[in-house]
Design a protein around this nucleic acid. Structure first.
Lengths: 351, 351
DNA sequence: TTGAAAGCGCTAACAT
DNA sequence: ATGTTAGCGCTTTCAA
């Protein structure tokens, strides 16, 4: 029955044991000066002896800061976000902040609740991947003075700081690479979600095509249906991409290359193509997005766009730390980190 | 300069505006009875008007409960843990708990700090994947009365509640399946980490081999080196498994099947085998572990062991909720959920 | 160098 | 049905 668990010791306990005032004990422990060395040693020893642990809630109540980051993410099973969690948690921890994590699962309702919850918890600041179904919840957070950094998806109306991947550039590079490899007719396979990351990638694709003077007939942008509000283990559904790819394969003229919005879609593509007797890259090139862990080990290995997850996470945390500190940052308000193309065999066409 | 952010409104503000006592306002808002309906309506209206948000720290300080789960995980980039985060966060949220997340990255030092941090934060309870480098930090947590549930890796000395995957059974099923498919000589490929999940899987492998009367010569258990304390994007390194597999392929006699400790290792195996001109499954069968998102889409598709991540997460959360509520649970102290074998092409040998 | 007093925002007794 | 008092554990004035 370990439930027993005696009451935690408080400053008062230590003060009583040592015949000191609570205040003295507080200062001895918090390393402030204006205290005798022997007193401090005494207090520390007693604190150690009884296993004193400060109560952060009490401290926060008076200082007004909970020393906590709120992190709001759509889906931890997305490897990009998983990495972001890691790198932000680490940075937070290094600066003695705790991490309060909320998952929105692309739901505006969850997002509204999340913002409210961060408010209640008096987080020192928030890092948010918005659902992009309105800016209200985060507007509110900023309005009451909680520094908020937008991650990966911007909400320009708010004028908050933002770090993310340059998806437009990613889409451009992927497409330009396909073109450089000889593709003339290129199809994009993207999820059907109304978020800027996807729109940006498509814009990048269009720019590359336009620059190369290539046409984008109807059907060049294919959409994979999303199942929102679905506590999904998978960030994306290769199976859904597979279905869409099969539909594409019924067309009279096949494209030379497909640029996928993520590597999971490329997985579905691979299967559809294999079943159809098409060889990658010789019959059709495939380019992924995300450089997910498996991509280097597919056969053929997948050419893809690597995302600067760790860097984005670190910058987000640093931006937040700066905002909390109150200093105007030298950094630009909006920061887009360039992703890099990783060339592998799925675009290495033998001539 | 949104930094302005006026002070948050408090109960006192509302009380003053309405000429009521703070207490009345408190009860009106918290839905307690003993309050006039018109008063309540009035208070609610005013709260709404000024956008009142309760201060959880203040409430927690007096109630003693922070309405927070502490979740301590080794690595969010492990898809199994990513799912666990999702399902636990959801369950917590449904019951109005927030989630405080800490990443240990397999470091005992981080773990000790994490436990201390949970203590400071007065979490209502903790769900922990221990590093298994000693039980002290969690012993301490329980000792001061914080309900703690162990996840995926047990610390039997503590006598805490535990939920996890039945890895022994998983290893057994994987191996037994290989045997059923005709394999006589089977090698296991496991990470080199001193944790029970791995030891259990190996034990299951041994049981299956023994039952079938098969021998396990030296070299039957191959170890893939771990890079600990490495904020890695990858939960495991296919590349490392690839290296180990290449070493194996230099042996005089090759096994009929390899049982991998996770699907990422299977990825490395696939490459090594392909480079060596060996066909899966005809020359060598491969079985993975984890049923990671990509596994169904490899070619050949990977036979693997699917882990009950969502179920484990939900049970962990439910156990914790029960412990917090203080009611003795009808459930067993230790709960092992059976994983299921997913048969695919990597073991479908044409006879 | 130390102590006393006040108060952070809230809830829980106990009055009225 | 409402108000008063007290106090959660800590930090922050201000005195001594």
């Amino acid at each position: 029955m370990r439930r027993a668990g005696g009451r935690r010791h408080t400053l008062r306990d230590i003060a009583a044991a040592l015949n000191l005032s609570v205040n003295t004990v507080s200062r001895a422990l918090s390393g402030k000066d204006g205290i005798g060395e022997k007193t401090r040693a005494l207090v520390r020893a007693e604190a150690e002896r009884v296993g004193y642990v400060p109560n952060s809630m009490a401290r926060s109540l008076v200082t007004g800061s909970a020393m906590t980051f709120g992190l709001v993410i759509t889906n931890p099973s997305n490897p990009f976000y998983a990495q972001l969690i890691s790198s932000i948690e680490l940075r937070a921890r290094e600066h003695d902040y705790s991490l309060l994590l909320t998952v929105t699962d692309e739901s505006a309702e969850n997002e509204a609740r999340a913002a409210e919850s961060l408010l209640r918890s008096s987080v020192s600041g928030a890092i948010v991947v918005p659902v992009q179904a309105g800016a209200d919840p985060w507007q509110r957070l900023g309005a009451v003075g909680v520094p908020t950094v937008l991650l990966n998806r911007d909400l320009p109306d708010l004028g908050y700081r933002f770090v993310g991947t340059d998806n437009e550039l990613g889409g451009y590079r992927a497409t330009a690479h396909a073109i450089a490899c000889g593709a003339r007719s290129i199809v994009v396979l993207e999820e059907d979600l109304p978020i800027t990351t996807i729109a940006d990638r498509i814009a990048g694709y269009r720019r590359a095509m336009t620059e190369a003077g290539l046409s984008m007939p109807r059907g060049s942008v294919m959409r994979v249906p999303t199942r929102r509000h679905d506590q999904a283990a998978l960030p994306w559904q290769p199976q859904q991409a597979y279905q869409v790819a099969r539909r594409m394969l019924r067309r009279a003229r096949l494209p030379d290359a497909v640029v996928a919005g993520n590597d999971y879609f490329a997985l579905g593509l691979y299967r559809a193509l294999a079943e159809h007797g098409l060889k990658v890259p010789d019959d059709l090139m495939v380019i992924g997005f995300g450089d997910h862990p498996f991509s280097a080990f597919l056969s053929p290995s997948l050419t893809t766009v690597r995302l600067p997850a760790e860097e984005v996470g670190e910058i987000a945390a640093d931006l937040l730390l700066e905002e909390i500190a109150g200093g105007r940052s030298a950094r630009p308000l909006k920061q887009l980190i360039a992703p890099t193309l990783v060339e592998r065999d799925s675009t290495a066409r033998k001539r």
